[in-house]
Design a protein around this nucleic acid. Structure first.
Lengths: 176, 176, 176, 176
DNA sequence: CATGAATGAGCCTTCATTCAT
DNA sequence: AATGAATGAAGGCTCATTCAT
């Protein structure tokens, strides 16, 4: 229990520091100091800086958002609406937004991240298409891809400029 | 002329190396070796590694694609079609695809990149909307955003899976 | 009794690990794991890693061989023969052979080891000379030194190449 | 030319520092400071600390002594005498004596050193036997081994205690 | 323009040692 | 006695940058 707390504290500190400095400019020293532990302890919980990067990068992807929405058993517009809502909520934080694009940018160098992204793009995309439309074909798949692309692009820009609800309803209207 | 050749050779080597290793894991040594010049010479053409990163990152964004299409004076569907075509062509190369997401990921740390991205998202997006639809309102702006998001998402995944032409026509159909 | 068992288990593990990795590349972690105890426990029995190194190094020297032969009250060729036999037996193990040269190599840094080696070279060498020849003079001392040198050199090389018995009888014949 | 000088300066500093502290307790920092160069430069000439250790260890073995004596075309007692003289001269320095045993102690961990020692023990030993006795058989080989063992043992102890010339002549007399 | 030796700051990682439990 | 989380001091190594040639 205590053990999980410390590990969690380190990961959260890492997310904060990595978001600000970038995975590679950030140092373990900074992470440790932010977490309030010694540098050595970081290496007790994570074999290497890379392992910590992978942990943070995984959490930065929208995988959890989509999985959780699928698990709720939602269908049709409801599902897409919920995904969009939670997606935009997650990436309303500057921290998460920065981490998302960093995670995407290392997928070729970090196989572990590459696999997660593939899982997201392939497996989950198909499941979403099925639940949203009742069936899957190339057309539906493209629509979901556009849907996710629209969300991704929104996470890229300055969120404030467009009212999220308007944006969501517009996206869903368009791809229906 | 010779001068431009060497500079260009260095930038191209940098793109190759940066794409493979990442901006921060790649070293100037590797760039120099790939370009077939000495390490010192890289610093003759670029004051610092950061300057080289910025140069490469700028080229990795789709700014040139959109600018060139706008300059051609295209309008309506024609414009969107041409942008999509050239966009997908540019990012059909693994190298460019990797560099694109790296460029996006450093926008907070590199103001120069941040400015380029803002320019892309704000200025150009509006111009595209105007040329494509004849006028700009919040609705049109969102549509173009979705359009670009769809292209971005396509650059993220394995390009091969979907036929580009189908994808393009589908996107354009949807956002019309 | 239990206490001695654990201590002994640790020393034996240390000999194994130290022989393989070297005194300074080996870690207490590896020793503990090999001994099947926790790292903390090693420090319960040995105040420091150095203390453990000294313990292992002492055991690795041929002091015990020579002492035990002297204690048996042997004289003349008998004594030399017995020393040679037990010496070669002890260092027929790869582990002991590696540890012997490591022990010799740290004598300047570890006074405790230096003292043991001095004891071996001076005190015992004289005693052996006396028991072997009945009296000690510079000539006899040199002969014993050559005798021990021959044994040391044998421990250095690939033991298998020469038949130990032949080697022993040849050495003793020569220095008589 | 300059390049060789710097490299040489580093190796000499390393020999000094390694002799005093031991290969593994010595730091590259200390070597660099002793050589009067920056730490980084050490890694310009040697890819790693290990590479430097191997270089130093090789020089610490008596290979050069034996090779040079063989190259002089000496035979019989002359050869053995010369080898003994140069051997004892080389290891009259505390530095070389300490380094010799360190070099011997790492032969299992450093294949490069192991190979050198094998070369010494096998190839050269045979050549010495041939030049010294005119022919090689198991008996002659053992004698040379004893000869080298006597020299090694001398390098181990406090050199001063016995007059080198007496020792040398005694060894050669005995193994003839 | 061009080279590559030289520098030095800084980072990841290791590991002996301590200590609360 | 026994454990293993926690610490912190180093150390090896990298690499951007400079500069004499």
């Amino acid at each position: 229990m205590k053990k999980q707390n410390v590990r969690e504290k380190i990961v959260e500190a890492a997310m904060q520091v990595f978001a600000e400095k970038g995975f590679f400019k950030a140092t373990i020293d900074q992470v440790a100091r932010t977490a309030g532990v010694s540098k050595g302890l970081v290496f007790w919980y994570f074999r290497s800086k890379n392992e910590l990067i992978v942990e943070v990068a995984k959490r930065s992807l929208p995988l959890d958002v989509i999985s959780s929405c699928l698990r709720k058993g939602l269908k049709g517009k409801e599902l897409l609406n919920q995904i969009a809502l939670e997606y935009i909520k997650k990436y309303s934080s500057n921290e998460n937004r920065r981490l998302l694009f960093q995670a995407l940018s290392i997928k070729t160098v970090y196989p572990a991240i590459g696999r997660e992204i593939t899982k997201l793009c392939d497996n989950l995309l198909d499941k979403v298409a099925e639940k949203a439309y009742g069936s899957v074909d190339i057309d539906k798949r493209i629509k979901i891809k556009i849907f996710l692309g629209a969300l991704l692009c929104h996470a890229l820009g300055n969120i404030e400029e467009v009212d999220p609800d308007t944006y969501i309803s517009k996206i869903i209207e368009i791809i229906n």
